[in-house]
């Protein structure tokens, strides 16, 4: 779906809030859906589900490793279990359990990590998840998704609930700009071309999709035609869209709120290397931990704004010549 339009990017609810609301929809639809949380339900927004379905909500206390394995047991016995906490905790502290109790036996467990990336701001690096997508991609058989707004988060939660097999979905803390209209289409292994363009392709996900769109607008004013693709499904990845972008644009910029050494950029580069190689630049957290500050200040200091995307595009285009 090639598009050329203006995105208003009106501020909407955080993707964690959309996740919490999607869980309630799932709970109403399917009595087999159960939810576990580790003392952060008011932050992850699983509290909506807990209030609606207290008999299907299990408080695990501050014990993420146990929570993941409890969820795996529930799922192995036929439930569709969602376990949720901050991404930094459920993925890092629960990684061993994700590996042995969920991925290895291919259990139908759903994991949702909220407060991902550095845009949580004030709480600082111990709570900032900048390695979760990479770790999740290290779990064979896991579906890994990182939607960018309310509409796409709700769609992805329903997709992973319907999918039989383990899945990880990444959500953010701060309010997210509306990118999609209701009814937009998503699929596991899919991506969405939000703007068509021919000079460069910008791949982004999560909150940085909005920055990529802003960057494209600035580039357009400078006579550069940038294609923007929301790579909301990281695993499986939309190989066809990557190959097309590589062939048709000849230059790619990947933008992510994640360590740039191990994030989606490396997966994009791998797929392009296997299909049609092209020159690339990467925008992400550069081999460091961030710090406390307002989300805006932190994002700016660590270089994840539209202007950084624009810079990367100029860099990649200079190499293209």
């Amino acid at each position: 779906m090639a598009v050329s339009r203006k995105y208003e990017l009106k501020i909407g609810p955080a993707t964690r809030e959309a996740f919490g609301k999607a869980l309630v929809e799932l709970g109403q639809k399917n009595p087999n859906v159960v939810v576990c949380d580790a003392d952060l339900s008011k932050s992850t927004m699983t509290t909506f589900f807990a209030k609606e379905f207290p008999e299907r909500f299990f408080q695990c206390g501050i014990a993420e490793a146990n929570m993941v394995a409890i969820g795996a047991g529930l799922s192995a016995a036929g439930k569709i279990a969602f376990v949720s906490s901050f991404s930094a905790f459920v993925v890092n502290k629960g990684f061993e359990q994700l590996r042995v109790t969920a991925a290895y036996p291919n259990v139908n467990l759903k994991v949702v990590g909220t407060h991902s990336g550095i845009s949580i701001g004030e709480d600082g690096p111990s709570q900032m998840s900048i390695e979760d997508l990479s770790l999740a991609c290290n779990l064979p058989g896991f579906v890994v998704m990182a939607p960018c707004d309310e509409v796409s988060m709700k769609a992805c939660i329903h997709l992973v609930a319907d999918h039989v097999g383990p899945a990880f979905v990444r959500a953010g803390r701060s309010k997210a700009a509306h990118v999609y209209e209701a009814g937009a289409k998503f699929e596991i292994g899919g991506s969405n071309e939000l703007l068509s363009g021919k000079d460069v392709a910008i791949f982004a996900n999560g909150l940085l999709v909005a920055e990529a769109l802003k960057a494209a607008e600035q580039l357009d004013a400078a006579g550069i035609s940038a294609r923007v693709i929301d790579l909301y499904s990281i695993k499986p990845i939309d190989r066809a869209a990557l190959e097309r972008a590589s062939k048709e644009c000849g230059a790619i910029v990947v933008v992510e709120e994640h360590l740039k050494d191990t994030g989606i950029g490396t997966r994009v580069a791998q797929v392009c290397a296997e299909t049609t190689p092209c020159i690339m630049e990467f925008v992400g957290v550069d081999n460091t931990y961030a710090e406390s500050g307002t989300p805006e200040a932190v994002i700016e200091k660590y270089g994840l704004l539209a202007k950084n995307v624009v810079e990367a595009v100029h860099k990649v285009l200079a190499r293209k010549k």
Binding site: V34, A69, A72, G73, L74, A76, A77, R99, V100, P105
Partner: peptide, 21 residues
């Protein structure tokens, strides 16, 4: 019922199964 070998995880998995029952 479960793949095991990494110690310390079996009781949690069992509790999840018991809860499902």
């Amino acid at each position: 019922e479960a793949s095991t070998g990494s110690l310390g995880e079996g009781l949690s998995v069992g509790l999840g199964m018991a809860l499902a029952a």
